[in-house]
Amino acid sequence: MGIKKVGLNRNIKPQSLAEKIFFLDFMKGLKTTIKHLFRKVITVDFPYEVVEPAPRFRGVHGLRNVDGTEKDDFNAWVKKLKIKPPEKGETRCIACKFCQAACPVPEIFVIKAKKLDVPKDHPHHGLKVLDQFDMDLGKCMFCGLCTLACPTVCIIHTDIYDISTYTRRGWILNKEQLSQIADDFIARRGKEKYDEKSEWPDYQKLWNDTDTARAKAWDNNPPQFGPNYVDQN
């Protein structure tokens, strides 16, 4: 670990007389700039061209529904927290409030579960169902700690990044809106993020490779990936 000395008379030579008279420093700078006139444009023409976010992007949250890809211990969790066993299409949330415990700003979440109103001899007597799940995204930091805490991979990050509304009330998403967002996202891009067991594989791809607008950001010279990039699922 050495030391390198820099300075006007150390590694930069001052201008010689010829350079001063013939404005060579200006000429070199001007030449560099004019070369860029003939290169292709690197800006993306939003909203006509859109760069798709990476698979790990942390956008607006969503609540996943039961669709056959839960983990093996999902039923154990449901039984432990006395939740009515959900059918296909109903939400996976078991009202364990781990996400609220992990969050640095717990006032975002309002989670309530209520007991089912069934007679005594019904098999689902005494079990609860999720009643209210509100998230106030105006206070959220999008740090991702809640998604890493959820035991059933219910709350996820989607790739939506524009959530502008006219009032602050519009940032408060309830259970139905969150489920809708997650359904949308899984239908579009679920395969990039999760495998058949809803696992979050560590060997995800860096970006999805269906993206031509991203090549523009790389100065029209996008990087070439290694040989085993293509056959990741």
Partner: peptide, 16 residues
Amino acid sequence: VSKDLPEGALDVIRHF
């Protein structure tokens, strides 16, 4: 770190 390096990250960094 919270997640491992994804596949392709080292190629991209080498290009950079």
